[in-house]
Design a protein around this nucleic acid. Structure first.
Lengths: 252, 252
DNA sequence: TCGAATTTGTGCGTATGTATC
DNA sequence: GGATACATACGCACAAATTCG
């Protein structure tokens, strides 16, 4: 009849937390190796690993393969405001967000002009599978570091032959969907966003510089106009880097 | 030199998915035991376990301790709309949501009248730690089954001596925060919601009838009035049961 | 420049607890 | 109460990445 009621790994994780809280371990410091910690605490190497994994998933520690496990630097998260006030004439929403935080907002993008819509996107856009779209993938940077990913899908026949075919080209480059649509006479009346939690894929983690399998919020956004749905956008917001804020006005 | 590039567990998970997609396994069916599956596929027992865990975390399978692993029943998720249109005079927001889905919306609540605010709540409400609050915990039901949890915190000195001291008592019971505040002359101008992904605690999983450690969205909501922040609410929305929709009007 | 030692990361296995039938 | 099945904790072996002489 053995059995401590709380697993050793959890106790060890608490010990790590205590050492960090009491400034025995400072941000950026490497931890001793797993074998060393294991010997000092009289536990198996795996127990150490599990304790570290727990805190890594919580953003307290950071593991670097081949190098060591480190105390994570406390980084201020980017506040991403999502409200109607985001859409201002001639200003890119993301850059406005970053300016409010005193950071430089930039982005890199790649546009593929005629991409057949995959099944799920086609369903969301009300198209047949395989109908052509303009797909643009974005990587948003705050002070040069990636903090957010997104992919936008616009049906080809919506913008074909206009000046705004390419989201990041022409006179309205980077002005945001609402402004671009307004330029071709399409009035966007409202947007709908559906945030869903999931874990980051390996590719996303690599692009964003975050630990693997950490939590992200996947926002599926739809812009609605009088004529129908102009644009769908998938946005990936890593929890470790950004906090999402929805502002909701209350009608009296 | 061994090593298949893809782990056995992932291949087995795909096999499970295929069997379900091809209707060999129907919703509600129990899977064979892990030892049996392991022998049939020539893999270890824990490989089966990992494959099942993966699909359980995705809501495809469902594990019941002591009983077996089952194909999850496909249940339609409850659509929770979060927008300014939610707040209508005299109507509880949640009940309106459920009515739009053709379901019956109910809730159970428990109010504790004078609870000292814990540190994090005090900070959010702009109080000192230990200041008294009215804490109300809710369990929202759709057709009798719990789908959402929330906890609201109201500073005592805000409502003390009025008819709306208790959120679920008096003439404005269940009418929603905005209406109750209006009854005592406090005009709520806007709300701010901050959705964060995390995993469900054991208690939450038990209350909501979901698998342990599945994903939820934890929404921290603040109602703002002209005088300051009247109310904070923590809302727990399980991904398996609900989808969250934010409607954002676009100002032309 | 290269390779060996160190460290983290991954996959798989075993023992034991615990719930269900 | 016994048998069965899932759940949990812990351990081992090897691969991948990094570091440093």
């Amino acid at each position: 009849m053995p059995s401590a009621r709380t697993p050793e790994a959890l106790r060890l994780a608490d010990e790590f937390r205590r050492l960090i809280a009491e400034h025995m371990w400072a941000p950026g410091d490497p931890l001793p190796s797993r074998t060393q910690i294991g010997q000092e605490h009289g536990v198996g190497e795996n127990v150490v690993r599990r304790a570290q994994e727990l805190l890594i998933s919580q953003g307290v520690l950071e593991g670097r393969a081949g190098s060591g496990t480190y105390v994570a630097e406390p980084r201020q998260r980017v506040r991403v405001v999502r409200s109607s006030a985001r859409e201002q004439p001639g200003v890119a929403p993301f850059r406005a967000d970053m300016k409010a935080l005193g950071r430089q907002g930039d982005w890199e993008s790649r546009t593929d002009a005629k991409v057949p819509a995959p099944a799920d996107i086609a369903a969301r856009l009300g198209l047949a599978e395989g109908d052509l779209c303009v797909r643009t993938t974005y990587e948003f940077l705050a002070n040069g570091k990636p903090v957010q990913l997104s992919t936008s899908w616009e049906p080809c026949d919506l913008t074909a032959g206009t000046l705004v075919v390419l989201p990041e080209g022409g006179p309205h480059a980077g002005a945001g969907v609402v402004n671009r649509m307004a330029a071709i006479g399409v009035t966007v009346s409202h947007a709908v966003e559906q945030p869903e939690p999931r874990t980051a894929t390996a590719e996303e983690a690599s692009l964003l510089g975050i630990q693997k399998a950490t939590l992200v919020t996947h926002i599926r956004r739809t812009y609605y106009s009088d004529q129908g749905r102009p644009v769908e956008t998938d946005i990936v917001v890593p929890t470790a880097l950004c906090e999402i804020v929805y502002e909701i006005p209350i009608n009296p």
